[in-house]
Design a protein around this nucleic acid. Sequence first.
RNA 1: GGCGGCAUAGCCAAGUGGCUAAGGCAACGGUCUGCAAAAUCGUCAUCCCCAGUUCGACUCUGGGUGCCGCCUCCA
Length: 532
Amino acid sequence: MSDNSLGTIVLYNTMTASKEKLETLEPGKCGIYCCGPTVYDYTHLGNARAAVVPDLMVRFLRHQGYEVKYVRNVTDIDDKIISRSAEQGVSPTDLAVRFTEEYHKDMTALNALDPDVEPKVSETIEEIIALVKQLVDKGLAYDMDGDVYYRVPDFKGYGKLSNRSVEEMLESAGSRIDVDQRKETPLDFALWKAAKPGEPSWTSPWGEGRPGWHIECSAMSSKHLGDSFDIHGGGRDLIFPHHENEIAQSQGAHGEDTYAKYWVHNGFINFAGEKMSKSLGNFFTTRELTAIFPPETLRYYLMTVHYRSGLNFDLEVTCPACHAVLDKEQQESAKCEACGHETTSDILKKQVRFPSLEEADDRLAYIYSTLEASQKFLETAKAPGQDVVVEGAVGEMLGAFIAHMANDLNSSGALGVLSKPLGEINGLLASGKGVNKALRFAIIDLFVKSMKEVAEILGCFGKDPSSWLVQRRDMKAARIGLDTDKVEGLLIERITARQEKDWSAADRIRDELTELGVSVQDGATGSVWSFI
RNA sequence: GGCGGCAUAGCCAAGUGGCUAAGGCAACGGUCUGCAAAAUCGUCAUCCCCAGUUCGACUCUGGGUGCCGCCUCCA
């Protein structure tokens, strides 16, 4: 594909429903606005994906030489925040501040870059009021008892992003939800809401009130990126009505040819909710998962599938006695059909496994092990005096990786490109037989250098391999309830037995370790253990 | 009902109008190993169904079936 030659980037644009070559308003620069979190609770994996996808985009564009201005908002005024704060007996502001902090912690854990600007609704009220006023003045909005509504049928382009027609929507309106009778048409949406007692509010030309849901993004993107900018991102569910309404507001105020040029929407995570009994609880917040898996495992997992596709989040619960997979009914009754074993909810909770995360974790460990061994090799081996040209899988790796990323951020395809080089490197590390010494060094050196760039783009594989592997091992040990000290003790016993060539004792100890869920690797430099 | 998406090996998942349809997991076989494990090498698909366009389609068009999402301030 000639479109994929280095330097050209293709993105899928929801507005045109097709892949388009990225041509930014100003060559070499790119303004990105991304709908950030509503801060009323901890983030879940879906929120994590909605942040990691634009992060990947920003990193890649920067790697390709773009000067990116990345704006991601925080919605700190919202119905959900108000109702949650009422439930908890705290002020909406305190709740929002608290969960903004928690959001930042999760983002840091996931290695998502800070946006260049992180505007908050509460700090953009002035601009929001000005924008609403502009729409009222233009006749595109009207005031009703302190509420201000957008006059949807008067905006010609309404529905162009989500591919809906105003006529059809008017016909079906009201069939699903009750319509506020004060509105001129059911499609009209609130730009400004009159304050109810106890709610946070600001003084406006229409009285005390607060912004509606959609107006904030129009106001904040204009403020920080201008009335027109390059890329607007968010989850698929925001296409309608949120992004459609943003377009109506911004283009209504600033003109039809303004606002975002490319609309990029990420797919959903399919939670395996039906597979899991409610009584076992849900641990799908980012926080709960990063407590049992290295955060980078989550990030890696999110990139194993193309960003527009759905991502299946698997989990399974197994019988503690016979390890059969239990379906929802068996989880609820806490009884295994296969072997008849009866247990309790609490015990079953510990039996929950995340196969897809475990696979991602193993893969990441394989990659880091290869990096660790490569770095050790380069530290001890002698660099060749002359330049050596590296061809083959390792030589082509970075170019192929970038080509995939340039094709609508195809991280899945890009990750696939790494497999051959990894195999080749591990082969070279195991044995230098039949390979020119200088070439061997050059290949491994190029691999490590290429992986550094890959790590910059992905935000993965960039940690110190040894420390990451230690962290990962400790977390996995905790996950399966492994007594590490006991393992280490057995390992020492076994090393002694092996030195004395007492194979039967060595094998017996190995069986014990296997029981614990540990496998042993005997190598030239000693014995190490890992998980089965 | 409206709009949109998806359907590729046991599982997950890229991709292409025509050369051997990436990669991962699992499985099987070889190398390595005291035996193993890890690592490595190899084996493992004709792309939901029907019709059409085309010299040629898994890839394009139409129809069907099946999943899923949005239309309800959930990413």
